Computed example of a mutant assay.
Amino acid sequence: MSVEQLDVAVIGAGAMGAATAWHLARAGKEVAVFEQFEPGHVRGASHGASRNFNVAYVEPSYLAWLRDAEVLWRELEAEADRPLLTTTGIVTHGPGVDHVATSAAISAGGFAAEVLDPSEAAARWPGLRFDGPVLHNAGAGRVDANASVAAFLSGAARAGAQMRWNSAVSDIEVRGDDDVRFSVTDAEGCRRVRARRLVCTAGAWTAKTLGGVAGVTLPALRVTQEQPAHFRPVDGAPHWPGFNHHPAASDPATSWFLAPVYGMLTPGQGVKAGWHAAGPETDPDRRSFLPDRELTAALVRYAAEWIPGVDAAAFAEITCTYTSTVDARFVLDRMGPIVVGAGFSGHGFKFTPVVGRTLAALAAG
């Protein structure tokens, strides 16, 4: 049986795989992207219209990546000729964060930051309730996830990348430092492929895809089903920033929270809010896609207590997967001819163009 020959194969056409292919193709590399499902599917973590471009980090390395990411998002916007990153500002509140120290770190990292008292914040953003200091990052914003993935893939294709949809990869075998073989099953049957490099950005399927491959060691990756919801605003006029709300066990008003809360306005759909990494573990091939009732009830309670600008009884839920590491750090590694990008832990999307650049460099180098 003949074996197809490739330079770089990318497994997974979600955000990270799409961005990796974009960087590789624009650098003149021969690249083919293998996606087991159809374009724009909703089984993973990259679908939907909104993600926070949140800059409320204290680690200098994350902030440096965010500076680069903002430049690359604007570059992708210009290439795609459509808006992708919208500056809305983001507010962070709750007793689980040292707002003054975080503000100082963000400012040192090159982004605007200010700490407001709750009355001033409430006057600016009446759709949200605050009961303590509020960290405001005016330069933060919202990324259109669906449009961004499409833009990366379109840009990669224009630069010569091949897109292989409904093409499942299995039976990966490392033969040498520049030789990795795998099987591809699609509508035409099953065939073997040889590549110099294989980049795995398979999201919730990472462990399934690479499990048992000689020379590949992964940290523990926990896959959960998460379920944010869009709530109907009661007034279409107020300006909505993105928001993050961090509880503390010692605070009676937030000690009942299941996890930190994040949210933003999704134009045309409502105000999105969700628990961060509070969902149950799941098998990505056996998901029910049905929201957990207890998580739903808690989120409705949160909206009723903390988002006065929405109707807490009028909402539509969506489900997605998180693939998380123990410390929420990303897996960006190369083992022989295999490059791995995984474990983006519910906060990786804003970094997508930088992650793609890093994985492309690992594959090229």
Score class of each variant (00 low, 15 high):
A27M: 01
F152H: 08
F152W: 06
A363I: 02
V331F: 06
E226L: 12
A18V: 02
A138V: 10
N166K: 13
A313I: 04
W165A: 04
R286D: 14
N54I: 09
D171M: 03
E173L: 13
G268Q: 08
L332V: 15
A207L: 06
S170M: 04
E305W: 03
I318T: 15
Q269H: 15
D98N: 14
A277D: 14
W22K: 00
T209H: 06
R82H: 10
E30S: 12
D179V: 07
G336W: 01
G127S: 10
C190W: 00
E59Y: 03
N52G: 14
A202Y: 06
F53Y: 15
N244C: 13
L153Y: 01
V134W: 02
I90G: 01
A18N: 01
S324G: 05
A207N: 03
D68P: 03
T20M: 02
V213K: 02
V216T: 06
E305Y: 04
H47N: 08
A360R: 02
A64I: 11
F152N: 03
V55R: 08
A147P: 03
M264Y: 10
L359G: 08
G356I: 03
A342C: 02
P267L: 12
L265I: 04
S46E: 09
A316G: 13
P247F: 09
E305A: 15
E38K: 11
V97G: 00
T254E: 11
F257K: 02
D68C: 07
R164N: 14
F111R: 07
L6M: 08
R222S: 14
H47K: 13
A140T: 05
H99Q: 13
G141M: 10
S288V: 06
Q269S: 13
S2W: 07
L128K: 03
A18K: 00
V42W: 10
A19I: 08
A342L: 03
L221G: 10
S170L: 06
A342F: 01
Y62I: 12
C320H: 14
A278W: 01
A161M: 09
P280Q: 10
V213A: 03
R142E: 10
F344N: 00
A138L: 07
Q225D: 10
T254H: 09
W306G: 04
A140Y: 05
E281W: 04
A49Q: 13
A298P: 00
A121S: 09
G94V: 05
V134R: 02
P219H: 11
L85G: 09
A314K: 02
A214G: 12
S103H: 04
D131K: 08
G309D: 06
R192L: 12
P308F: 07
A56Y: 03
L265F: 05
V91E: 03
T86M: 12
D186Q: 11
W22D: 01
V91T: 14
V310P: 05
R334G: 07
A157I: 00
P267S: 12
N54L: 14
R329L: 12
